[in-house]
Simulated assay, not measured.
Amino acid sequence: MYITITAQKVQGNYAQSAADFVDYLEKENEGKPLPELEHFFDQQHDEIAAEEVIREIDDNTAKLKNKEPKFYSITLNPSGRELKAIQDSPEALKRYTREAMKEYAKAFHREIDGRPVAITDIKYYAKVERQRTFKGTDKQVRENQPYATKILELKNDIRSINRGEQIGNTKTLQQKIQRLEAAAPYQLDGKRIVRGMAKPGSQSHIHIIVSRKDASNRYSLSPGSKHKASEVEMHGKMIKRGFDRNAFIKNSEKTFDQLFRYKRNYVESYTARKTFLKDPKLYFSTITKLPANEKAMAFKLLQQSGVNTAVLSIPTNKFQVAIKALNQLKKGVGKAIESGSIGI
């Protein structure tokens, strides 16, 4: 499970309205028949209209300045293995979202009217999305780019010839284009993978719009707080503050496992991701010490995400002599983590 929390910005400035973000999330519904539409939902309601989401988020910004985030975007990104475990069910994803948002509320080190923050204090709207598209940063698009560049140059040459600006054989150039299209290393259904093309397989994920202010529009609840858990004196009172992002992500992961009896492998865990970022050598060493069946699954998951695991066959006490191979493995795992392809 790969979870992100971001403040929404437009050209470097915090978005003053949720309208553009809601419109972006509505694009997947374009052209779909009514029974197939994915609607917004919150903790208690289904089929919430986009207009209501915009109105409720935009009206819940009391005393917030232009330079402060008005709302945050949370994404819950299950891996292919996790989606398979729940049969890619939108209803299961909704159920999970509602439980994960309870963990979001618990992660605030705040009090409202003398009690801890509860899910009823959180104003949020979520939506299940079923598709993803290839981005310019994806490996497939990046490694196809040299072919795309040459194809564009040839197409420009053809247009110049047709306008009489240069001499050449357009048929020959078209044949070159066809050869380049076929030679591009990453293809999908016989076509070169390009930015914007829909990704294959199960791609379901959840987008959540959560207000910066609590449901009463009185208190600021910022998941972007730099403070994990602390107290500060304000107006003569000691006020609790902070948000524990690690606790939110870790407990949301645990919630998924408990809800669906999911047996999470080490390399899929948030703990593994944190270990990799802090101490890659310990990360790899831990994998080699897993029980045989778990280690086999770890290798399989890493290999499926494009990581060369050959170095993991080197005895732990000889890692020092394989530092070059270890660095290559680090690079591969890092890219897999960034893309969420091993579910971290």
Rank of each mutant, 00 (worst) to 15 (best):
Y14K: 09
A15K: 00
A19H: 10
D23Y: 04
K27D: 03
G31P: 04
K32M: 02
E36W: 02
L37K: 12
H39I: 02
H39C: 00
I48T: 09
E68Y: 11
E68R: 11
Y72Q: 06
E82A: 15
S89I: 10
R98W: 10
K102A: 10
E103C: 13
Y104H: 04
R110V: 03
I112W: 01
R115V: 08
T120A: 09
A126C: 07
K127F: 05
E129Y: 05
Q131C: 04
T133L: 10
T137C: 13
N144F: 11
N144V: 10
P146A: 12
T149A: 12
K150E: 15
I151Y: 09
I161W: 07
N162L: 15
L173Q: 05
R179L: 06
R179E: 14
L180M: 05
D189A: 15
G190Y: 11
K191N: 13
R192E: 07
V194G: 01
G196E: 03
M197Y: 05
K199M: 09
P200R: 08
S204W: 00
I206T: 04
S211H: 09
K213I: 00
D214Y: 02
D214V: 03
N217L: 12
K226L: 13
H227A: 12
A229L: 03
A229M: 03
S230N: 05
E233I: 09
M238I: 07
F243S: 01
I249A: 10
K250L: 13
K254W: 08
T255M: 10
D257R: 11
F260C: 07
K274R: 11
F276E: 07
L282M: 10
L282Y: 03
T286Y: 01
K289L: 14
P291L: 05
N293K: 14
N293C: 01
K295Q: 15
A296W: 00
K300T: 06
L301C: 09
L302Q: 03
Q303K: 05
G306H: 08
G306Y: 01
V311C: 07
S313I: 04
T316K: 14
V321W: 14
V321N: 15
K324N: 08
K324Y: 01
N327G: 07
L329V: 14
K331Q: 13
V333Y: 09
V333N: 00
G334Y: 06
K335E: 14
S339Q: 15
G340E: 11
